[in-house]
Amino acid sequence: MLELRLVQGSLLKKVLEAIKDLVNEANFDCSSTGFSLQAMDSSHVALVALMLRSEGFEHYRCDRTISIGMNLTNMAKMLKCAGNDDIITIKADDGSDTVTFMFESPSQDKISDFEMKLMEIDSEHLGIPDTEYQSSIKMPSQEFLRICKDLSSIGDTVMISVTKDGVKFTTSGDIGTANIVCRQNTSVDEPENATEIKMQEPVSLTFALRYLNSFTKATPLANIVTLSMSADLPIVVEYKIGDMGYVRYYLAPKIEE
């Protein structure tokens, strides 16, 4: 028996919007720790890891660790029917081949339930090593969205270089080249407008902009995004989900032949 009640239902709506373009179907893992997911895109270039910790739910009942396979496009369709202020409850009975999403309006005058078919999905989890990254950048998520969008009108790939002077995003294409440099700036009114660069070692890696643009679908979840990079490792693009968890995207770099 699984019953998860999330007062801020809009978070789950935003999570689905953030991952459904990258991954079509996935197993959600439910345990006493929380509601989580790890899945790769179909070409195995990117990986998304979601965590919604049990403490973040108003009610969290998960009698045993289970995986429930869902088509994310269909799940997103159903969650779109929930109002932004609605409370969302996810329910699944043991051995059932369906999951129920219940939406309650804040004043309790409208209650909907949507039953969705589950899927059998073969998936294997990858071990993500706990690494101290050589460089990490915290910046406004809107700024990162803007940079990825702007650069993808010029080129297909971006080189992200972190030095003590700042972080440089470089692309080039048929029409020319573009460089955007962001410097550390922590002297701002609001912490979410700050850009903070931590660098143990300078790092420079190249990535496909198509994927980074897809990751920015998570922008509504968090004002701040963190980019973590080390030489010859996938970049981690992390959006925190309040204090209840995160969506992390891992993207394999482009490698010189």
Partner: peptide, 14 residues
């Protein structure tokens, strides 16, 4: 140009 790496070449199956 540079080749796209695969995530499975960095992270191994559990």
């Amino acid at each position: 140009g540079p080749q796209q790496g695969s995530i499975t070449s960095f992270f191994k199956k559990k």
